[in-house]
Amino acid sequence: MTSTAYKTMWTAGRVAVAVVLAAPLLWAAWASLQPIDRIFAGPMAPTPAVDGLQWSNYREAVTRLPFLRFLLNSCIITVATTIGTVFTSSLAGFAFARLRWRGRDVCFVLTLATMMLPAQVLLIPQFLIFEHLGWVNTYKPLIVPSWLGGSAFFIFLFRQFFRSVPQSFEDAARLDGTTHWQLYWHVMLPISRPVIGAVAALSAVYHWQEFLAPLVYLSDFNTYPVSVGLRMYQAMEGSWANLIMAASLVALVPPLLVVALAQRYLMRSIGAPKGG
């Protein structure tokens, strides 16, 4: 086979995979706009034009349960956790990368070790601690942990980035007699846009979709985030495929937007692929 034939074959393969990956969301979009009996009627015959689309499904999907409330709750949790994660994990990353202090290397190894701990080992004792602090049924168990360093992976990303900043930046600032804080706030953070973007995006998407923690800590349904709200939807209106699809797609819009906006930063920080 010639090399052009090979190239065409590979491109065809990539396009085919892309179609397969897009198909579930496309079907969900189609189903979210159908009357329910249309979905139960079986084969996806061509839908009669645009007027066959039932946009009212979306209105119904967000009003049957207090779905807008769930969305708002998720926004509050996500924004609060993301700010905390970026702030405290960048602080720790900075201290691990640019400051010398006793026990630094031991602490860094400890940080990485926490990544290996299964969440379930910690879930029960964490729950009991938060319960005895009187934090159950509040957002504190969901938000406070991310203000305490966030996750080890994010600290690691910040540390890698800060280590790559040339020493000359720091020396120049030190000559002017800056403090650690000024060095962090006025020199390091302003040049960290890529890693801040990546950490903020990953943290936001993760916390938007977090399910087990809110399931365990929240019991008043007015405080539910979207994830637990969708679970309630499944339990109560599960057979309304069109409404479930509409609600699910609405819940997927924010993560998709965040990833689209942060795409450049994400690829640079976690992958390494260049170009594109």
Partner: peptide, 11 residues
């Protein structure tokens, strides 16, 4: 997240 799981539930 849960949204994706519910979509696959129907798929």
């Amino acid at each position: 997240g849960v949204a994706t799981i519910l979509i696959w539930w129907w798929l």
